[in-house]
Simulated scan of single mutants.
Amino acid sequence: MTNAVDIRKVTKVFGTFTALHGVSLSIRDNEFFTLLGPSGCGKTTLLRLMAGFEEVSGGEILLFGQNIASLEPNLRPVNTVFQQYALFPHMSVIDNVAFGLKMKGWTLPKRRARAGEMLEMVHLSDFADRLPTQLSGGQQQRVALARALAPQPKVLLLDEPLSALDLKLRQAMRMELKQLQQGTGITFIFVTHDQEEALTMSNRIAVMSAGRVQQIGTPREIYETPVNRFVADFIGETNLLEVEVAAIAGDQAEVILPGGQRVTCSSATTEKGRHHLSVRPERVTLGTVGSGMQAVVEQVVYLGTDLQVLVRLDGGTAMQVRIQNAARTEVPSPGTRVGLTLEEGAARLLAD
């Protein structure tokens, strides 16, 4: 499969601060690829290097096999959608969409036709003559998308474009963005700190921390088989249990849980000793005293679709259990002693 972007050992230094430490990754053509991580992890810096807004300190960035390091931003076949939409307030919606085409020398009839097509694609044809200030935040975001897509870039860079929207609109726009990417066939590279956004939209995700890529994989791979504590803890909710490794064979391990029970799990490490086990709250089952790990229920929190049950193991470790309300399982009240068992294949031994 053709790669749209190849990042090869890219380093970025600002004065005495190193923002990126030899980052390498490949992004396929026609892929929705997400750079995910907390603030300050280097994801936006990497995006700005691709766009040409910053210069690399070391390494290479290739676009469809061509080294673009020496190309000015306006000469790169990429466009960027920013967190702040940067629409021209004095221009109509259709003129905003057509602006980039005018800069590229398109004739008036051609750019008006293309801008009209883009507005139809983002369902804003009826708003063509309005000013940006007459639109909602979600509509402005769609105008910014239409403007960025109008010149048919090979790659579209999106720097947290949904963060200014309210929750309901953000959820709706996730689906629209995914449909746009699939409909246009353009490679989307999306930057976010929101794990749910990354999981719902992406073909693949690169999880970043402190200027380094921690793991690259599909949403399912990232969620179900994290490689280390950072990825496991950053993606969704997880229980991290310190366990003793009894045996390791290939990518499987036998570990001793708190309380002495032995379970087999997938493993990201090949070393024995004490490591952390990741167990998602929805993969833990509440049972009777005497089965599994022994604990006391401390709190039950109603979350609408789920109940979050907070328990404390006899050894002092806190754990979370998620129970779907649709299951109508009887939940013990705080102070009740319970036993916790793990679903088969639920646990993942991490490389710390």
Rank of each mutant, 00 (worst) to 15 (best):
P258N: 09
E160C: 09
T133Y: 12
D166V: 08
G105N: 09
T269G: 03
A351P: 08
Q308T: 09
A327C: 04
Y302P: 08
I186V: 15
E176D: 10
A115V: 04
E60V: 03
G250S: 02
S24P: 06
I235W: 11
G100R: 11
G65C: 07
T2C: 13
R283P: 01
E298H: 12
E343Q: 11
N67W: 07
R283M: 12
G52V: 05
L167K: 15
A347R: 07
A318T: 10
F17P: 05
G304W: 01
G273S: 06
M121W: 13
V300A: 12
L286I: 12
L165G: 05
N228Q: 13
R170Q: 00
V338S: 05
P73K: 03
A347L: 08
Q140V: 06
L145Q: 05
C265I: 02
N203R: 04
L20S: 01
L75G: 11
L303M: 11
L310M: 12
A164S: 13
P332D: 03
A247L: 05
D6R: 14
M50I: 15
A351I: 08
V23S: 10
D352R: 14
R112G: 08
Y302F: 14
V309E: 03
G260A: 04
Y302A: 05
T133W: 12
T285E: 09
L87R: 06
T44N: 00
E244D: 14
A246K: 15
P38D: 06
I7T: 11
G290C: 04
V321T: 04
S163K: 11
L180K: 01
R280K: 14
A98E: 10
E244W: 11
I205E: 11
L241G: 04
V213H: 09
D29T: 00
A246F: 12
A19C: 13
G315E: 15
A206F: 00
E117W: 05
T34A: 06
L63D: 01
Q294A: 14
S291I: 09
G304Y: 00
V13A: 04
G292V: 01
L313P: 02
N3I: 00
Q324G: 10
M319A: 15
L180W: 09
V122W: 06
V338T: 02
E176H: 10
L87P: 02
T187I: 05
Q140C: 07
V143L: 14
Q294M: 07
K110G: 03
L46V: 03
G292R: 04
P258A: 02
S278F: 09
P153H: 13
R229I: 13
P334W: 07
G52W: 09
G15L: 06
A115I: 06
A247C: 07
T329R: 12
M319D: 00
L131I: 09
V213R: 10
I189L: 06
D251F: 14
L25H: 02
L36A: 02
A115H: 06
Q134K: 13
S266Y: 12
R28Q: 11
F32L: 14
S26V: 00
A115M: 07
E176G: 01
L49H: 03
G105M: 08
N239V: 00
A86Y: 12
E31S: 04
E196H: 12
E72W: 09
R111H: 12
G40F: 03
F190I: 01
V309I: 10
M319L: 15
P161A: 12
L145R: 04
S125T: 14
G58Q: 14
A232H: 08
I222G: 10
F99Y: 15
G211H: 07
L349V: 08
V191S: 06
E197G: 05
L277E: 01
A247N: 09
